[in-house]
Amino acid sequence: MAAIELNGVTKRFEDDEGLFDSLLPSSDADAVTAVDDLTFSVAEGEVFGFLGPNGAGKSTTINMLLDFVRPTSGSVRVLGHDAQAESVAVRRRTGVLPEGYDVYDRLTGREHVEFAIESKEADDDPDELLSRVGLDPDEADRRAGGYSKGMSQRLALAMALAGSPDLLVLDEPSSGLDPAGAREMRDIVRTEADRGATVFFSSHVLGQVEAVCDRVGIMRDGELIAEDTIEGLRSRIETDSVLRIDVDGDAALDAVRALDGVSSVETDGDRLIVGCTDDAKSRVIEAVEAGGATVADFETDSASLEDIFLAYTEGDDSAGEPEVTA
């Protein structure tokens, strides 16, 4: 059984200001499609990295898993339960580190964790959970209102770990953490995965997920544009190159784009940046010259994982930006 299963999920946000606005007729112009016909699944026991730039729809997707936000259409199932109708059953077995949360200013760190344990009807030792996430007893006894972002993040993680959940949903878990904290976070993710938990976590930085994930999905503009194992992504490095060409005159961009093996074409002033397979390089240069432009200079790099990620996520629909297909 899949731990997470989304089927044709779309979420449109109407610009609804609540009680007073609901009395006025709404117009379609105010609606934003945050997630568009999203279908994917995460297997039990898998560590799934959910990647994409800010605003790609990652948090909206996660919020639908947790029933914070309701899909406009499509179905969301988590741990075999309908995410909306049986949300409490989902959350009983899920540990969540949400995005855009805040801690209760007047409760201490330990009280937060105790509240989580009580709500999940678990029997964890709060001090043990707190020490796992690196909050010492002195800090745990202070009111959380005085916590730094990093400490709040650790506290929320401790709450998520309460009750040894079958599924961990972590939305940008490393935000607010220093590099050492981010590494501890990854260690915890690994430990939980070894215990058998499914881990679903989002990030806008590839480096944070590649070390721990079995598989990644990349979101852009509300759509899943790639879904692959880290190895699958890596295999692209071996075949993909980035060709930087300094051109005099106008290059025939469309002709270059149409070539076999060319995945992206981007311009930066007089410079042409082409993502392509190794054997396509000479064809690219020929095409540029055949189009009437002169190649003044060129260099080639093999693409890093980061380049691939950026190529996937940084483009938009305007001309001259990379167009990458998975």
């Binding site: 947790l66 580190l97 949400p98 995005e99 709450m159």
Partner: peptide, 8 residues
């Protein structure tokens, strides 16, 4: 979000 991340 903390409150509703728990089984409430």
């Amino acid at each position: 979000k903390l409150l509703l991340s728990l089984p409430n």
